[in-house]
């Protein structure tokens, strides 16, 4: 399995980026050169230099340090949203696919309702209704994300539910709970796990988007989307204030996508 990861250069690049982001998040205080929130009006809007690698913003905060601390916020959002949405979606999808009939109908119609809104609009309205904060953005994103896993898991459950090993389990007298968790879910979860690793990037992107329009992280929090929003007005004088948070988002999303795609090839147990 390790060899299959290392043999693909793109997967390795994805892994490399993700590891760098993890290191940045874990050791943020050691890596950051300045405080992420300390205002220093004397050195405001300074261009990138040896003192301030990525320059400073309109109130003199060090952009490099803010981006490093921002990895913590973004990773936390990505992980928590996926960790909430994934189990909910998986379990509902597995129940819908395995039970079929009316239970399937009810679960999938609810799923359809959620999917019939554009995700970001739904998340916006939830976040706006709950009030702007990081926690509410996470709730809003989790609420819009689970239906995708439900659909993926349901369809893979449907394709295996008539397998003989599941029938064998029924013949042995296993209860539906055991069949669902020991037989059905382990064999239908792989496509959804891959989707989840891809989604880490997309969730971070969406959260940045919500923060950009003012529904997520509030100043002075070093959240990348919020930083982008702030730098909008000073784009002409200070290109660096928008460029570096933007690049941070770009590389994070790219890293998780490349890694997710690579995992896609590796997760098949028959190729182990």
């Amino acid at each position: 399995m390790v060899r299959r990861v290392t043999s693909s250069p793109l997967t390795m690049l994805g892994l490399f980026i993700v590891v760098i982001i993890l290191i940045a998040a874990l050791f943020a205080p050691a890596i950051a050169t300045h405080s992420p929130t300390e205002v220093d009006l004397v050195s405001k809007l300074e261009a990138p230099s040896a003192e301030h690698y990525f320059g400073t913003d309109e109130v003199g905060r060090d952009i490099f340090s803010r981006i490093i601390y921002g990895t913590r916020i973004s990773l936390r959002i990505g992980l928590l949203v996926v960790l909430i949405a994934f189990p909910i979606g998986t379990i509902l999808g597995a129940i819908a696919g395995y039970a079929g009939g009316r239970i399937d109908q009810v679960i999938m119609r609810i799923t359809d309702v959620f999917l019939s809104f554009p995700g970001i609009i739904l998340a916006m309205s939830i976040a706006a209704a709950l009030g702007p904060s990081i926690e509410n953005v996470m709730l809003a994103l989790a609420a819009t994300w689970w239906p995708w896993y439900t659909r993926i898991v349901r369809s893979s459950v449907m394709s295996i539910k008539h397998s003989e090993f599941i029938e064998a389990s029924r013949a042995l007298g296993a209860n539906p709970f055991r069949i669902l968790f020991k037989e059905v879910i382990p064999n239908s979860i792989a496509p959804a796990t891959i989707q989840a690793s891809l989604d880490l990037g997309f969730v971070i992107l969406s959260a940045a988007g919500l923060s950009f329009i003012g529904l997520g992280a509030q100043p002075p929090s070093p959240e990348w989307g919020a930083m982008l929003a702030n730098s909008r007005e000073i784009l002409r004088e200070a290109w660096w204030a928008a460029t570096f948070p933007g690049l941070a988002i770009l590389f994070t999303v790219l890293g998780f996508n490349l890694l997710g795609d690579g995992l896609n090839d590796v997760m098949d147990p028959k190729q182990r």
Binding site: E167, A168, A171, K182, E183, P186, N187, P269, K270
Partner: peptide
């Protein structure tokens, strides 16, 4: 009373 299936590739859970 137990059952033995036709397809030995489909009757065993591949992840166990």
């Amino acid at each position: 009373m137990q059952i033995v299936f036709q397809d030995p590739y489909a009757s065993l859970n591949p992840r166990r």
